[in-house]
Design a binder for these strands. Structure first.
Lengths: 228, 228
DNA sequence: CGGTATAGCTTGTTCAACAATCCAACAAGT
DNA sequence: ACTTGTTGGATTGTTGAACAAGCTATACCG
């Protein structure tokens, strides 16, 4: 699952300190789950009174939880109107892919890219396995893990967080498309090809291929969006 | 000033919609200002009762404001202990520079880098002007604007936000160094050189120079940190 | 001196109230 | 019919007070 630990930056000192999550954090986790799994649809309103009842927390705590997801850009607040599940525009999708192109291509073409290979291979296999049993939602999950593995090779926790947040947002767009299969299937083999390129140390070629890859993915996603 | 509009993602439709900031947002803005200007020192505790009195807001609203800055990583919360101004470790600095190297080098070497030239030039001039009058704090501000101009050339609002947040965090480290001049002076001319390289369309050379640049900046910052 | 209870303070969470704002429905005027 | 007030109900924004839970330091005891 894609989850973003926006919360308590590791306490200054202790690497071994058990901390139970705050209620607000639990609220955010629960809502994020609902959003990413599609149970809370894009554009849906999150009414305070209704959610306090459903989650069994107070209004103030719920609002603290909202703030977490607003910072993650999964929710948006409109003053005095309410909180809504973010609805991605075509411009948002283009913006996200612009970031992906810059970051992922740079990461995959960098010398350290090979460090991500083990996880990339796992994700590729997971994707094919999920496709074999027709679970296109999970294919999407495996695809996210594949691309996460690319940027994770840089070894920066901040970059990880950024990418996780970006993909969580992108999933909002995936949900708007009618045909998950058409969206993900073409990239199963291309992910495998990308692994091969990285294995062979063809840095520039991998970067170029990924750039084309992302362009096509963006166009597919965009064209499937305008249809509604 | 570096400010991150984590808040209300532009309302779904309207490009022309006036919105007053919520109190929680104002609280976050005020605290961010205090933190970045150094009045709230790194590591300092933000006591709820004290701040509610100082800001004239309720505890609940203050806590909503906290959440915003926690998401921006300027504050950290330790359960039942309190909220503190983030204190950057050496590992944090290295992490930040790893991201900067990837992003900025890719951006400056990309075809669209020239789009950022006007703002880059302004920032360079601002920096030299500030240096001439010995205002090293403002030299730091101009330097941030310079690097922001590089990534802004990509044209992604998400990338802008990410970089702004990154630089806000980095400023926490700047504050820990005793000698702002030593930290910033060497890069006044190198920024100028970078402008020239981009003007000439020497993409690869600009990327390589920026990589060296960031390595040195990182080392300087790190060595000035260990001293305390 | 080291360990442990105790007390005080701060944070975590809830609840209830009121103010500000939005929204839909209705009334009135052109 | 179409716009323009007006009004009332519902929702969000913010507050204050209360209590529970968890830290921290002091004082106490072996």
């Amino acid at each position: 699952m894609v989850d973003v630990d926006t919360q308590p930056g590791h306490g200054p000192s202790s690497p071994l300190r058990l901390r139970r999550a705050s209620t607000a954090q639990l609220v955010a986790d629960a809502l994020r789950e609902q959003i990413l799994s599609g149970q809370l649809r894009s554009g849906a309103q999150c009414q305070e009174l209704q959610l306090t009842a459903a989650l069994g927390v107070s209004r103030n705590t719920l609002r603290e939880g909202f703030q977490i997801l607003i910072a993650e850009r999964l929710l948006v607040r409109e003053a005095h109107r309410g909180v809504f599940v973010r609805r991605l525009s075509a411009a948002d999708v283009r913006d996200i892919y612009a970031v992906r192109r810059l970051l992922e291509c740079a990461a995959v073409a960098s010398p350290g890219a090979a460090r991500g290979l083990p996880e990339m291979r796992v994700a590729v296999d997971d994707g094919h396995a999920a496709a074999a049993r027709g679970d296109w939602y999970e294919v999407g999950g495996a695809d996210v893990r594949f691309h996460l593995a690319i940027t994770a090779s840089v070894g920066s926790s901040r970059l990880d967080r950024t990418m996780r947040a970006l993909f969580a947002e992108l999933r909002l767009a995936f949900q708007l498309t009618p045909d998950a299969r058409a969206l993900h299937e073409p990239f199963l083999d291309r992910n495998r090809d990308l692994v091969t390129l990285v294995e062979n140390g063809s840095a520039d070629e991998a970067g170029a291929e990924l750039a084309r890859y992302l362009d096509e993915a963006e166009n597919m996603l965009l064209s499937s969006l305008v249809r509604r």
